[in-house]
Amino acid sequence: MQHNLPAWLIWAFVHLLFLIGFRNRYVTLFQWAWSYLTFEREACLVSYEDEEALRSQASRAHS
Results as ranks from 00 to 15, higher is better:
1 M>I: 10
1 M>Q: 08
3 H>V: 14
3 H>C: 04
3 H>Y: 13
3 H>I: 15
4 N>I: 05
4 N>P: 00
4 N>H: 10
5 L>Y: 10
5 L>I: 15
5 L>G: 01
5 L>D: 05
6 P>I: 02
7 A>Y: 12
7 A>V: 06
8 W>H: 04
8 W>N: 04
8 W>E: 10
8 W>I: 13
9 L>I: 06
9 L>E: 03
10 I>S: 06
10 I>Q: 10
10 I>M: 06
11 W>S: 03
11 W>V: 01
11 W>M: 07
11 W>Y: 11
12 A>K: 04
12 A>T: 06
15 H>D: 06
16 L>C: 01
16 L>E: 01
17 L>C: 09
18 F>V: 02
18 F>W: 06
19 L>Q: 01
21 G>S: 05
22 F>K: 15
23 R>L: 09
24 N>C: 06
25 R>D: 01
27 V>F: 09
27 V>Y: 11
28 T>A: 09
28 T>D: 00
30 F>M: 13
30 F>E: 14
31 Q>C: 04
31 Q>Y: 03
32 W>C: 06
33 A>E: 07
33 A>D: 05
37 L>Y: 06
37 L>I: 09
39 F>S: 12
39 F>G: 10
40 E>Y: 03
40 E>C: 06
40 E>W: 03
41 R>H: 08
42 E>Y: 00
43 A>V: 07
43 A>L: 07
43 A>Y: 02
44 C>Y: 08
44 C>I: 14
46 V>C: 03
46 V>H: 00
46 V>Y: 05
46 V>D: 02
48 Y>A: 12
48 Y>H: 14
49 E>Y: 05
50 D>C: 02
50 D>W: 05
51 E>N: 05
51 E>C: 10
53 A>C: 04
54 L>W: 10
54 L>D: 07
54 L>I: 11
55 R>N: 07
55 R>F: 13
55 R>E: 11
55 R>G: 01
56 S>N: 13
57 Q>C: 10
58 A>V: 15
58 A>C: 07
59 S>N: 09
60 R>C: 02
60 R>L: 12
60 R>E: 11
61 A>T: 03
62 H>M: 11
62 H>Q: 14
62 H>F: 11
